[in-house]
Nucleic acid binder design. Structure first.
Lengths: 117, 117
DNA sequence: TGTAGTGTGTAGTATATACTACACACATGA
DNA sequence: TCATGTGTGTAGTATATACTACACACTACA
């Protein structure tokens, strides 16, 4: 049950096939952690790293930071801060959307974005 | 800058004026922590407690759990789990709503709730 | 005057989080 | 054959989180 590590390793190996800059050591250097640490994370011997490291990793691998954070069981501090400013409002909205299908939520996102509000 | 503790103490003292069940010791017992710990939290000598304790405290004081968690700089695990299931969708929605006024978000909540979706 | 209740002070503990430092074994090409 | 690069194993560290246990001083009232 090592979703995060497995996912990262798979993505990295894919990229490594065509670009030597994606060896474990190179990636570790790019995101500023020890190679052994990244190795352990990929193999699930260590839990996922902290938010900053995950976001750096996402950028390095061309992944969506929020999605990668989610795989690590986290939600970005930036989003949490937004929620904490109006906790009741956002709590209700999120709970109400819990069981809505993706397309409904997406429609909502678009309407908000289009500014009919 | 002890928002959480100050707020809790104020609420508790208000309630204590008309009901002796809201002494520090009684409340501590009700939420299952040591009195000295609650005392320190109220005075800001200790950071806010964990989620479970905050929710128990909110119930005891008749406060909104999400609001009290927010004062403690937290967001409930329950909401986080919902977000983590569809991280990209929720991330976008939350960021888009960041600068919307309350009434706009509220209108959205109501529309969702009324099930025009 | 003692006992019941109030809040507080002191001194810890267990567990989790987020890593570092360095040595090791294997492969590959020059 | 040896320098370079690959991933991994071992053994730690610093800091934060979330508390407990118990003694102490003060107040009120019976």
């Amino acid at each position: 049950m090592n979703v995060f590590g497995d996912y990262v390793r798979q993505r990295r190996l894919e990229l490594q096939e065509t670009d030597a800059a994606f060896s474990l050591r190179k990636v570790a250097a790019a995101i500023d952690v020890e190679p052994s640490y990244l190795s352990k994370i990929e193999r699930g011997e260590q839990p996922p790293p902290g938010e900053k490291t995950i976001i750096a990793l996402a950028k390095e691998l061309g992944e969506d930071p929020d999605a990668l954070l989610a795989l690590a069981g986290k939600v970005s501090e930036e989003l949490l801060a937004i929620i904490r400013k109006r906790p009741k409002l956002f709590a209700q909205l999120i709970r109400d959307l819990k069981n809505m299908p993706d397309h409904a939520v997406l429609r909502l996102v678009r309407e908000v974005r289009d500014g009919n509000w």
